[in-house]
């Protein structure tokens, strides 16, 4: 693994039936970098995300995280222990849990589970520590006023932040954001941008998928552009957005 990288994606290929959803994509994310993955609908961005998070299995290729750990050898529920967490494009908050509990779910694997502990209430100290961390992260993202509400009682923009809070509470080294700006209005998008920069200031690497080109150019250090399963460009936002192939992919001939 090259020095300074936290994640290396090497030659990933994935087909569904006869369709090549991802065709030999490689790129890497550096430590403390905000990397964006963009591309038109059907470019394979979400498929790649699902491969990274272990939901799909790649046909070939590998993903290396930190000290030579190949992600494909881990079950999906173990990834969070390595220091990778994610948010979802279509909000995945649990409606019957308060925001507080939803964020606490992000620390599930930090609690050492044991049925005996649960029955005799011995896990309470750990639970308290979890909620202290939940308080901290919600203050950091300025959503503490919503903690006791349920997901259907809060605005959409806040739900996005709660998703991020849940991913952040376990203090990961790499966070994957799946279209964080989708469906947000201008003010909410601005708030999100600020939050992303503040996360970055905490030395957390970020890989995000995004549709909104303006949003991406204003927040990322490096951009990868995909089109119909292939990587067609990579580089600084200003370079990539002037690339002829990128313009073609977005605008047509």
């Amino acid at each position: 693994m090259e020095k300074g990288n936290i994640l290396e994606i090497k030659n990933i290929t994935k087909s569904f039936g006869g369709i090549r959803a991802i065709d030999g994509v490689s790129f890497s994310v550096k430590k403390k970098q905000i990397k964006a993955l963009v591309g038109p609908n059907g470019a394979g961005k979400t498929t790649l995300f699902n491969i990274l998070t272990g939901i799909y299995r790649a046909d070939s290729g590998e993903v290396i995280f930190k000290k030579e750990k190949n992600l494909f050898s881990y079950k999906p529920h173990r990834l969070i222990n390595l220091g990778i967490s994610r948010t979802f494009q279509n909000i995945q908050l649990v409606d019957s849990l308060t925001i507080k509990d939803n964020i606490a779910l992000g620390l599930h694997s930090a609690i050492k589970t044991n049925p005996i502990y649960v029955i005799f209430g011995l896990s309470r100290k750990q639970e308290r520590e979890v909620f202290e961390k939940v308080d901290k992260v919600s203050k950091f993202l300025r959503i503490e006023e919503y903690l006791l509400k349920f997901p259907n009682q809060i605005p959409f923009g806040v739900k996005r932040l709660v998703e991020i809070a849940r991913a952040l509470v376990s203090e990961p080294e790499l966070i994957l954001l799946d279209e964080p700006a989708a469906g947000l209005n201008e003010r909410e998008t601005e708030l999100l941008l600020k939050s992303i920069f503040r996360i970055w200031e905490r030395n957390i690497s970020i890989l995000l998928i995004e549709h909104d080109v303006e949003f991406v150019t204003s927040c990322s250090h490096s951009i990868v552009v995909m089109d119909s399963g292939k990587k067609i460009a990579e580089g600084l936002p200003s370079e990539v957005m002037n690339d002829r192939r990128v313009i073609k992919a977005y605008m047509g001939e």
Binding site: F88, V94, H108, T113, V118
Partner: peptide
């Protein structure tokens, strides 16, 4: 016993499995 279970992190995980299995999986619930 039931209340102890549902009011612990175990209960939280169960509710997550019920509604958003993918989210439960992503946050370390087996």
């Amino acid at each position: 016993l039931s209340f102890r279970i549902v009011n612990s992190h175990f209960g939280r995980a169960l509710k997550a499995i019920h509604e958003k299995e993918l989210a439960a999986l992503s946050f370390g619930v087996n």
